[in-house]
Nucleic acid binder design. Structure first.
Lengths: 114, 114
DNA sequence: ACAATACATACCCATATCGGTATGCGTCAA
DNA sequence: TTGACGCATACCGATATGGGTATGTATTGT
């Protein structure tokens, strides 16, 4: 077995910087593949492949217009990530760090006796 | 080149379910490796490897006590993820979906004429 | 009908992943 | 001192990734 498939969930899909870039671009509005290719610095097949991953986890929707494919953002799957990280919010506040430090010092003062 | 290294940033580190599980366990407090091994269903070397990744992106800190390594959570690197996803918050609200739909309908009504 | 355009897909390559087993090393206990 | 324990690291294997090039397919324009 290798790493979990990137198509598995939003966490994996979003771990790739290029895919985050695509989502950021799409956040401004619907765009065609060629549009995205122009905006990013990579070749079209690569963009298409990243779009496929995003499609498979439901982060983007497609609409066919003539020979164009217009991609649109669907942020809903990001909610899972948001909910998970949000639980850690208190963790990176200054207050939390200080509290931890104090606890730590108390613990060490308790364990050792010089 | 293959996929971006998992040690590259918090996004990659957290894409792995097992590593999220470790963080969740550590959120309850400091734990030794053996402790984590017992709590998760995998062998010790695997836990150690995941811990290494988490260490390298700064998501955990270690403390040596005798022959034990006590790991502690450091949520700070999660902040980057939080900030990124949070920008999309409006995206998965009901209101945003409705708004998009309306815009979409207006656009189609404007383009075609049946 | 034919060429051009817009994408998706098929391959190929190099790499790094996760899982597991074997091993090394420092610390503690007898 | 010797053995057990706690953990990290070295390997190995299978797999899937991201990058790229070549190619196929549908739609549009001439």
């Amino acid at each position: 077995m290798a790493r979990a498939a990137t198509t598995a969930d939003a966490f994996n899909a979003v771990a790739e910087p290029r895919r985050r870039q695509i989502l950021d671009l799409l956040a401004e509005g619907e765009r065609s593949v060629t549009d995205l290719v122009a905006a990013m610095g990579i070749v079209q097949p690569l963009v298409s492949k990243h779009l496929r991953v995003l499609r498979e986890v439901g982060l983007v929707d497609v609409r066919e217009v003539g020979r164009q494919r217009l991609y649109r953002l669907n942020g809903e799957p990001l909610r899972a990530i948001y909910d998970w990280v949000r639980a850690y919010e208190r963790t990176w506040t200054r207050r939390f760090d200080l509290m931890e430090t104090v606890i730590e010092e108390l613990k060490e003062r308790h364990d050792s006796d010089d």
